[in-house]
Design a protein around this nucleic acid. Structure first.
Lengths: 206, 206, 206, 206
DNA sequence: TATGAATGAGACTTCATTCAT
DNA sequence: TATGAATGAAGTCTCATTCAT
């Protein structure tokens, strides 16, 4: 968000702020519609209506539909990156950090999938691996990277690359969340804790 | 079915066999196009062209596009189910069965993802969950189920539900394969064996 | 109908009789479907199915759809012609003949309209005025013609052409029947008799 | 509406007026095509071409084909309603009003049928009977209703319901016009006057 | 900068008709 | 003679995008 528009109302009507408002309104509307009706249900007309702008206006901020979707994904990814590492601090013990991020991912996945917002994440993210995407990923996984690097160097974790460690442990939470949302089961608190413990077992040395 | 087509290859073009051929040609063409351009890129006209039939012909075999897609998914799922459990026998030791299926899934995922054929699997399978889908899943996971049940009852595995055990161990191979296909890393034989070992660690009691 | 097929079962399977059966089956099926779903709802495939023949077979008896419809109309028209003049005899008094035919037309129109079978009559008959159509009309109106001619020559009816007299009197019953079927009103026996009387008034000299 | 378009003809092409023009152009084109090729011959592509707009444009003004047809019928019905009661005034004697409307209907029917434009009226009007249709009918028949009511109450007409009186007298003109257009006969002025007289005889008390 | 009417390619689907068997 | 699979033109409608205002 442009913070200036909150502290000084004058900025709210200025060119760039207004523009930013419209751009944001369009992106927000896109997310809303995608959450409601999935990715294929997004038409530029519905989007314009939902965002309260004219159809042509969208093309002042995005070169075409693909560009718009790209930027929606970017925004979703950024929000996800923040959510995943929320309340995680380097000063916390290794296991606690692991547990916190595991739960963050699990919660995020459940809500995303429930809202169909997962589509913004799953359908799309794999398709692109642009510079920006990689930037996001680095940010997204900075604390994750640190966790795995630290754990491996102290001999707590197995000597595997970080992405492999992630796939073996943290990303299991995504799989479990998805399955739960599809109705395969309903994990209670104990089951979740057991799953976290098992994920931990996967990567520590025994 | 016209049995003659099995005994005498000359009959291969006779009535019912021809029909089966055409249906299959359409499904194959659909898989090809989906692999090339994803799910949304499949138009009935392109499909007709690729399959070498008239547009209207498709509707002799499938009531509409959704029906066609359903049947494509079914076929893909069935092929996957077979591939996953290939060369796995109950008489084999628990660990060996685990390793074999892990590798089957990994290999399948790599090739699927490389062809984008995963879309037929990932985009769609979750959408339905019909009776047929469940039937497929049961078949798909019969040997998997047996593995986990046996392991848990003998105290080798943790006391978790089968789907959870699967997510913690076997399905990790999908995540790893996808990441590899996206270019995050290239797993050599040692790394794969280590990943299998780590997956095993996730579900056994320590 | 081919009477031979009733008296000698051998004829039932003979070429021409069989052919006539199929042709009739198709026409009957067409009438059934038109009655059910109107004229536009008639597709050659549905027709083939209803008639119990293959789609291609229809084209052995009718050159194309238009030809088929033409012949359906012809058949309906013939049946109508018979119905209109049923139980009318030259020996009956003028007024009685008039009343009988008026009622025949009214009853026919009601049932036709109720079955949507009117479409076979109203949508189509005006479109063509072929030789056969005229032939049908002459037959259809032979007793009507006689009625009007006789009435005019005896000075009972106004000196107007037969088709004009028909429009002024007998055909009013069609208009009334149609309106009733559309729900404008429901004519009881008295109202119908009054309408007949009024129709009579239209054409007699006063 | 943009009021300027009423005060200054230069604005005739400005926004809202243009829109109105386009909608009207489409409706006019529809009437033209229906007149030429009947109701079934109307395809949205042909219509777009005839109207000089893109196919998609039609859907800005009409939700779908059925909606378009409905509005065409409405317009035709309204025009007919006006034509039927043109130059008819309550101050005129009963018979004169009757004669005028009879002729109005006859003339209208002849021209409609000659253009096949009757199809807009006959094929369609009976199908709906919506609120709007009834509104049209009331308007269409206000002077007709008044005529019949007045005539019945003054004892000039038979004690029959208005729709029945209409069918017996005024609507005969439609039947006669149709038959004439189909080439059954050609009514000269005397014959028409005689027909009017006969129609009058149908409903008056003797 | 913003609008939104207009565009027209292309989506899915139907159906009268043909023709090899 | 009968079949019915196959055809492909034509149908209705959607939607990303443009452009005059």
């Amino acid at each position: 968000m442009n913070e200036r528009s909150f502290t000084n109302p004058l900025y709210a009507l200025s060119g760039s702020a207004l523009m930013k408002d419209k751009r944001q309104k369009i992106i927000d509307a896109a997310e809303t519609l995608i959450a409601e009706s999935g990715f294929q249900g997004l038409s530029m007309h519905k989007l314009a209506k939902e965002a309260g702008v004219a159809a042509g206006t969208i093309y002042r901020y995005f070169s075409d539909k693909e560009d718009l979707l790209q930027q929606v994904r970017l925004e979703v990814a950024q929000r996800n990156a923040e959510a995943i590492q929320r309340d995680v601090d380097e000063s916390m013990p290794l296991k606690e950090r692991f547990r916190k991020m595991w739960l963050n991912i699990f919660d995020l996945s459940v809500s995303n999938i429930d809202n169909l917002k997962n589509r913004a994440q799953y359908d799309s993210l794999p398709c692109v691996r642009s510079h920006e995407t990689k930037e996001i990923e680095r940010k997204m996984f900075s604390k994750v990277d640190q966790l795995f690097t630290e754990g491996r160097e102290t001999g707590v974790f197995k000597p595997l690359d970080n992405p492999v460690l992630a796939a073996l442990s943290l990303e299991v939470s995504v799989t479990l969340a998805r399955k739960q949302s599809l109705g395969y089961y309903q994990l209670d608190q104990d089951a979740i804790e057991a799953a976290i413990e098992a994920s931990w077992d996967a990567i520590i040395t025994h």
